[in-house]
Amino acid sequence: MASAEHHPFEFQTALKDLANSANLKAVPSKFNFINDSTALPCDSLPVIDFSAITAEDPDRRSQAINDLSNACQEWGLFILVNHGIPEELMNATFTATREFFSLPESEKKKYEAKSASDPINCGNFNVADTSNQIFTLWREYLKLYVHPDFHCPNKPHLLSDVLREYSERTLKLTRKLMEATSDALELERDYVEQVLKLDSSLQILVANLYPPCPEPGKAIGLPQHTDPGLFTFLIHNGVAGLQIEHNGQWFNPVSPQNSILVNVDDQLQILSNGRYKSVKHRAVLNSEKERISIVVANGPSGEAVVGPATPLVQKDGRPLYRSMRYVEYLETQLTKSRMNGKSLLEQRMI
């Protein structure tokens, strides 16, 4: 399957109505993206017990940190359990975002993005594949910048409170996971906090709606990509659709109820000087059920200049990646993520 890059913004917001129309038997041509979504089942993903990472027992914590490090090296993805976020809150995020997607188009149009950096935007956009063919994603989304400043639509009335609480809780989890990875990489915690400016870390929440698609092999929710930040958290409404790449093969990850799928992102691969792997993943479609996913992308501060950690460069003898300000990395990925067939992460390699 060809990788894709973001194209200058051309938004489509009527997908939900289109998908619900009774006479829709085929995918309209503008969504046409032929893809093979074949993937193997995968029930052996690393499972990380968050309560062990925060345990007072040093042996239990040490084992959990070792397990976390292995997961970041080998898979770039793990299942987080015993994380302390109530299942009721997780379910409430689906209820509130479904209500948002069900608002009249006139209400949602208030939040159509004019640029990639708008703190609230929704809709859908066209992308270009590596042959520069333009197509539209079979996806409607709501994207919010939620830290260091919280932004959210004022309707539906439950949305703001629910997403604020969920973002705050996931931010705390991320700080603890970054402490654990710092220990695993034998880095000082204050080194990571200072270099990445974690007090003002940039956190983006995206709610994705993937309606049933009459021809799932002729459209795509999201083409293969990696995420730009440190750790990305994903939960979904019980309908599968996420696929991950591991050793050149695509897999369907299976996660237990109330768990969180966490994937390693580009900045953590760069910071670790290549020890940890940013995982390629994609969102595929089905013809029967609506899928909702809530994604929280946890990054450094937008102003942080991210490069390989100096102590790791000293160990390795050289840096494997060029440094770049995180906000510039984000803007580049959103506007022109590929150059000469290379992803932005590959372009940063020395």
Rank of each mutant, 00 (worst) to 15 (best):
E288A: 12
E288C: 10
E288W: 07
E290M: 09
R291P: 11
R291V: 07
R291Q: 11
S293K: 02
I294V: 14
I294L: 08
I294Y: 00
V295D: 00
V296A: 06
A297L: 14
A297H: 06
A297I: 09
A297N: 04
N298R: 00
N298V: 00
G299S: 04
G299A: 03
G299Q: 00
G299K: 00
G299E: 01
P300N: 01
S301N: 09
S301Y: 04
E303G: 03
E303K: 05
E303H: 06
A304D: 00
A304S: 10
A304T: 01
A304P: 03
G307E: 02
G307P: 04
P308W: 00
P308H: 01
A309G: 06
A309K: 01
P311F: 04
L312C: 07
L312R: 08
L312M: 07
Q314H: 14
K315M: 09
K315H: 09
D316R: 13
R318G: 11
P319I: 09
P319D: 10
P319Y: 08
L320Y: 08
L320Q: 13
L320R: 13
Y321N: 01
R322M: 11
R322G: 12
S323N: 08
R325D: 02
E328G: 06
E328K: 14
Y329F: 15
Y329C: 06
L330Y: 07
E331D: 15
T332Q: 14
T332S: 12
T332R: 10
L334P: 09
L334G: 15
L334D: 13
T335P: 11
T335A: 09
T335F: 02
K336A: 11
K336W: 03
S337V: 02
S337Q: 07
R338A: 07
R338N: 11
